[in-house]
Structure formats: C-alpha cells, structure tokens
Design a protein around this nucleic acid. Structure first.
Length: 269
DNA sequence: ATGCTAACCTGCGCGC
DNA sequence: TGCGCGCAGGTTAGCA
C-alpha cells in the first residue's frame, strides 16, 4: 500500500490526535512483523508524552520525551485513531493507548511493516537513506551525479533508497512516463537534461498525490478512514494493454527485479 | 561498489 | 464451488 504520499497522509491525519498526548501503554497482539517488536518496547515507551510526528522516507517517527517510535507500514500496513474500547479486528497487531480514551491502532495483514524504539536518529535503517524527494537536496543534478557508472536500469536506480527515498513502484512508473524515459534504460546513459525532467516529475507527482490524500489501491485508508483520490490519475501503472493517453499506442509491461513496469513504447525512450 | 535473488507474509483474482 | 498459481504498495540480507 503505502508509498511516500500515503505515509505523509497518515502522518498528517494522526498528528493532531497524538501531539501532547501521553502514552498510557502499548498492546502488542502480534510481535512478528518484518522485524520482531522488541519485548521491552511497551514498558520503555509507556508514560511518555508524544511531542512530535515526523516522517523520514516511509518511516513515521513519533518523538516522545525519551524515545522515538519508528513505524514502517510495509506493503499493507495502516494506522487508525479509534476508541481503545472498539474491538480489535483481524490483523490489528498493535495499539498505542493514549490518555484521552483513544488509541493509535496498527493493522498490517502481510506484516512487512515494523516498529522500533530509538534513542536518536542514528539508526542503521535511517543512516544510509538518500535525500527526501521533495527537498532541495534532490534534483536532476543529484540524480545525474549518482548515476555515473551505473549500468542498472533507471527504474531500479530511481527506486534505490540510497539514491532518493520514497519513490515506490507506482510513482517510479508514473515519473518515468512523465519524463519520457524508458524504464529499462541504463541510468548511466541518461543526460543531465533528462534527469532534470525526471526529478521534476517525481516532485510534481508526489506533491499532487499528497495533496489528494495518497493513492488508493485495494485497502488503503488514511488515518481518518477516508480513501485517497490519486489512483484515478495514474497514466501507466496498472494500465498495461490499454491505450496511452498521450499517443494512443498500447502500453507495454515488463518485469524488473520482480516488479512490474508499465511504459509507453512511443512516449518513453 | 554494484547488482541480482530470495526472503519476510497474507489476500485476492483468475483459470481450470 | 474449490484449488493452485501468480501477483501485490517495501526493503533487507546475502552472495556473485
């Protein structure tokens, strides 16, 4: 489910409900996520007030007084604010119980998500991440520099978290279409000018998706339970075999690193 | 250093 | 109706 816009939508939805709240306790019903939830995590976090809700890449970072709770939603995770009394449903793995009768409830069918407790942002999972796509650190020149000598297809290059964070399969496909770049082209063989178009496309797409509450595919819901509205604007993702909206040629599909890429053979070179 | 593969899981849609 | 298969928004470890 979640790419960066979904995580940011979740952060914005959750923030007003958790800021200033004290964490009374945590209920862990299923600790086997992508990495096991540390058994001592609930006791360490209980009693602390939540001071800030940040995002880094696709990680949601809840800063408390002495620790930061780092949450990843994986492929199928979601967070909802709800009364702690409402009965947990299937795959509701963790409740972060707040002091106002509500809880932040983590649901994740596939359990590819994770929860870690940090004492600083110096963590192996955060240390080697590339720039935020919507920051000024990320632009065409950055992509061009990082692509020197890289023979990997640009699609994989763009999805590499050490190059830039937050660009998942959907937006990688869409950005390459918007920039007119074939997903299989070697990253090191793309001009600065074309990388400028690609970086701009990433920024435009992610910004628009955040504005509209993320992309809804199957089961995504934001923290207030409302679906996003960006899905209807996808030009290539999920449209293999259909006509390109720009040139009417049939969109093709190929698999790269076991992920599907959809592109227009006319518009993308 | 780069790049490829398998791995972690469940659910859903499709063809038979 | 049921079953097996392939595929799905992510990311890491391990190995060539």
């Amino acid at each position: 489910m979640p790419e960066l816009p979904e995580v940011e939508t979740t952060r914005r939805g959750v923030e007003p409900h958790v800021l200033g709240r004290q964490i009374l306790s945590l209920t862990v019903r299923q600790a086997n996520l992508r990495w096991p939830v540390a058994p001592e995590l609930p006791d360490l976090l209980a009693g602390q007030q939540i001071l800030k809700a940040r995002r880094r890449a696709k990680y949601l970072l809840l800063d408390a007084e002495h620790h930061t709770l780092m949450i990843h939603l994986g492929m199928s995770g979601s967070l909802r604010i709800m009364p702690v009394t409402s009965p947990p449903l299937f795959h509701d793995h963790v409740d972060i119980v707040l002091d106002d009768g509500n809880c932040l409830r983590y649901n994740d069918p596939r359990r590819f998500g994770s929860m870690h407790l940090l004492t600083s942002d110096d963590h192996p999972l955060l240390n080697h991440l590339g720039p935020e796509p919507l920051s000024s650190d990320f632009d065409g020149a950055w992509l061009y520099d990082r692509a020197r000598g890289r023979r990997a297809p640009v699609k994989q290059f763009l999805m590499d978290g050490q190059v830039v964070v937050g660009v998942g399969n959907i937006y990688a496909n869409e950005a390459l279409f918007m920039a007119g770049i074939h997903p299989a082209r070697a990253a090191g063989r793309i001009s600065l000018q074309r990388f400028v178009r690609l970086a701009d496309a990433v920024k435009v797409l992610l910004s628009a998706a955040i504005e509209q509450g993320g992309t809804t595919l199957r089961d995504f819901v934001g923290s207030d339970g409302q679906p996003g509205y960006f899905a209807q604007q996808l030009n290539v993702y999920g449209r293999a075999g259909l006509a390109c909206r720009q040139c009417t040629r049939t969109l093709r599909e190929l698999r790269q690193s076991n992920r599907s890429s959809v592109y227009c053979p006319g518009c993308q070179r």
